[in-house]
């Protein structure tokens, strides 16, 4: 096995780790990290492929990687700004579907939970204050339904 092939194998394994992290982790920052691992693994594969030739080092994959690094940092930066804004708006560090699945995504639909709410009279049980995030989400939804999609 050549050095290039060895590193290509490592790149493959890193790809797997990156995708695994993206799927299994819920924290947004963790998911961005996983994507960055994935990116660097692809770059490593390119660099390894450039090294395969016995007589020369291929400059084209190098140029591709250089371009890719800048693109990766741009996308990461934007994703992080987005995550910060999302956190500021909702107080969450996860995507909403990881928070609670149905109601957040299909508001107003007659699903099991809201049926149960309706039967029990709705609203939180007396004596238990609503959570801050919940309140914020509700007001958010109200605003949306008032103004519609912009």
């Amino acid at each position: 096995m050549s050095q290039a092939a060895f590193y290509a194998l490592v790149a493959g394994a890193l790809t797997g780790i990156g995708i695994y992290g993206l799927i299994t982790q819920r924290h947004l920052l963790r998911r961005v990290l996983a994507v960055n691992i994935l990116g660097s693994s692809v770059f490593l594969l390119l660099v390894a492929l450039a090294r395969r030739h016995p007589d020369y080092v291929d400059p084209v994959p190098h140029a591709m990687v250089l371009t890719g690094i800048v693109i990766a940092v741009s996308a990461t930066a934007f994703a992080l700004v987005l995550a910060r804004r999302y956190h500021a708006a909702t107080g969450l560090t996860h995507l909403p579907e990881d928070e609670e699945s149905e109601e957040a995504l299909a508001p107003g639909l007659l699903n099991r939970r809201s049926l149960a709410d309706r039967r029990s009279g709705g609203g939180p049980p007396p004596g238990q204050p609503e959570r801050r995030q919940g309140a914020r989400r509700r007001s958010d939804e109200d605003r949306r339904s008032d103004e519609g999609a912009q």
Binding site: Q3, V47, R51, H62, V73
Partner: peptide, 19 residues
């Protein structure tokens, strides 16, 4: 470092600085 090992010093520089 790995990229430097793979004869890609340009990239090693860029990765250290940016990546």
């Amino acid at each position: 470092v790995a990229w430097a090992r793979l004869a890609a010093p340009d990239l090693a520089l860029a990765e250290a600085a940016i990546g």
